[in-house]
């Protein structure tokens, strides 16, 4: 009896202790759930592009390549998002066939989007206010030309994971920083930080330093230049 009594006390004690931990665990679980699932939606607003645009249609059906729209100008600067004039070169008039009853929802959406673009922007000569997923902050100077020529000059001839594409297919170099949009058939909402106004895709400094801070990049090519200078003034003018 004595033994049983002691055994019941131990069991009650363990239960009490276990119950005592539960609020702590619940608190931790709630915080984790809030922090990982709810907080990101609170800190980033989701903004929509002015109208539907499909990279996939342009690349798969029309046969354009990235550089047809995202190219370097003669002076070496990068066009980024093409201006209206570039798009109007093809979209002076509606190119898509008018959808029929048999058309898929995707085909109808593509037609409506192009019609809206031609009527609202091309015809009126208005630039499209595209929202940018990746825009470097004002305090960062970034040159696509420098990265394209300098990174490419070495990584083109490298093998394996260090290879960043081939002369015929330089996309891998672009994909080092940008997500591949070639297969994308829909607009991705632009996530904008409500505190900073930066998009969620804005590269952080540590991401730049994945290359810039690599010791292997600090060799001297004999002309007083380094491959990826990590000095402050390289990016912050």
């Amino acid at each position: 009896m004595e033994e049983n009594k002691h055994g019941a006390d131990d069991s009650n004690c363990r239960l009490k202790c276990a119950c005592g931990v539960v609020p702590f665990l619940i608190g931790a679980a709630v915080a984790l759930a809030f922090g990982w699932w709810v907080f990101p939606d609170l800190i980033f607003s989701k903004q929509s592009q002015p109208f539907y645009f499909s990279h996939n249609i342009h690349m798969e059906k029309v046969g354009t390549v990235c550089s047809d729209c995202h190219s370097f100008r003669a002076d070496g600067s990068f066009t980024g998002v093409p201006a209206l004039g570039t798009c109007a070169g093809c979209h002076g008039e509606i190119q898509t066939d008018e959808p029929s009853a048999a058309s898929t929802p995707a085909e109808k959406a593509a037609y409506e989007a192009e019609k809206f673009f031609v009527e609202e922007y091309v015809a009126k000569g208005r630039e499209v206010p595209w929202l940018r997923h990746q825009y470097q902050p004002d305090n960062v100077f970034f040159s696509h030309a420098a990265h394209f020529s300098k990174c490419y000059s070495c990584h083109l001839t490298m093998k394996g994971s260090l290879s960043l594409g081939t002369p015929d297919n330089p996309d891998k170099l672009c994909m080092t920083c940008h997500p591949s949009l070639a297969e994308l058939d829909k607009n991705i909402p632009v996530a904008v930080n409500v505190l900073t106004d930066y998009s969620a895709s804005t590269m952080k400094m540590w991401e730049c330093e994945r290359c810039h801070a690599l010791p292997g990049h600090f060799y001297n090519d004999g002309k007083g230049r380094t491959a990826a200078n990590n000095a402050c003034y390289t990016c912050h003018k």
Binding site: I26, G27, A28, V30, L32, F39, P137
Partner: peptide
């Protein structure tokens, strides 16, 4: 105990670090 658990849990989420970073950028 709930608050203590929540406090510890928050430290294992992006909240403090993201807010600290965003405050600097702000």
């Amino acid at each position: 105990k709930f608050v203590a658990g929540a406090g510890l849990g928050v430290m294992a989420t992006p909240i403090p670090w993201k807010l600290l970073d965003d405050a600097a950028i702000w």
